[in-house]
């Protein structure tokens, strides 16, 4: 549970994502999807409740420690590091698994150099997976927003995640880019990654997800396989219906 000055953003919401599953999280604006994400990543701290990762309770760990366990996130609002190239941005993602600390960097330079080469390689292959290897040396902030989103996904992948939190990764993408992102997500799922995906485009989610949780006003109003969700009257009333009415 998390509230902001009396406004309860998320309450009693429970989501379980086993590895190898792509779990969709949908709901109208303000439903608490992003807040739930931030509670999992540690960006926000829950007032009450548990976050269990691989059998371990992590809700009291600082965000960098959670990242080291394998929780990676791509933000809804794109947050690439300014003043750095695309490749360097992706390389920063590797901090969650690199062993070297400050002392290592200072004292064990050979190891540091070898690890740095490994990081560079890993970052390059993550860029390849999102289809942007040709932009590696561009300034990150100069890319169009859709491509910045893809760079965020690459940065998250470079962290060798075990669970990947993607907050609307497909928004702002063109059709072809969407298709390749969707193929990448299917492939990552097949590799055994647990993926939690927030997305506005319900069709995009239902095609990929093996399970879907629907939130509205901070609560889970339905969860199940995509076909059930599509027929659920509460969901249609709260979300799908509203969307259809506005469309």
């Amino acid at each position: 549970m998390r509230s902001f000055g009396g406004v309860v953003a998320v309450d009693g919401a429970s989501v379980a994502v086993p590895s190898g599953e792509l779990h969709g999280l949908i709901g109208p604006n303000g439903a608490g999807k992003s807040t739930l994400f931030h509670l999992i990543s540690g960006y926000l701290r829950a007032d009450r409740g548990e976050v269990i990762f691989a059998g371990q309770r992590v809700e009291r760990l600082p965000p960098h420690a959670r990242a080291r366990l394998g929780i990676s996130i791509a933000f809804q609002a794109v947050r690439l590091f300014r003043g750095m190239t695309v490749l360097e941005n992706v390389m920063v993602g590797a901090h969650s698994w690199t062993r070297h600390g400050l002392l290592d960097a200072a004292l064990r330079l050979p190891l540091h150099g070898r690890e740095e080469a490994e990081i560079r390689e890993q970052a390059a292959s993550a860029l390849e997976r999102v289809g942007l290897p040709h932009l590696a040396s561009r300034a990150a902030e100069s890319l169009p927003l859709g491509q910045q989103r893809c760079v965020q996904v690459a940065r998250a992948l470079c962290g060798r995640p075990r669970v990947l939190l993607l907050d609307e990764p497909a928004s702002g993408l063109r059709w072809a880019e969407r298709e390749s992102l969707s193929a990448l997500l299917a492939q990552l799922r097949a590799e055994g990654l647990a993926i939690l995906l927030v997305e506005h485009d319900v069709r995009f989610v239902t095609r990929l997800a093996s399970a879907i949780t629907v939130m509205d006003r901070g609560r889970v109003i339905a969860s199940g396989v995509p076909d059930e969700i599509r027929r659920d009257p509460a969901v249609i009333a709260a979300y799908l219906g509203r969307e259809r009415a506005s469309a």
């Binding site: 960006y43 960098h64 390389m91 920063v92 993602g93 901090h95 698994w97 690199t98 940065r155």
Partner: peptide, 29 residues
């Protein structure tokens, strides 16, 4: 350098840097 990149990342967006596994406190030291 990789360490320098981490410092630059901290100065660009501390909270995002933290979520990448960077210990911002130690970078501050």
């Amino acid at each position: 350098t990789y360490l320098g990149m981490a410092l630059t990342a901290c100065s660009s967006d501390q909270r995002a840097a933290r979520l990448m596994g960077i210990d911002v406190w130690r970078m501050g030291l």
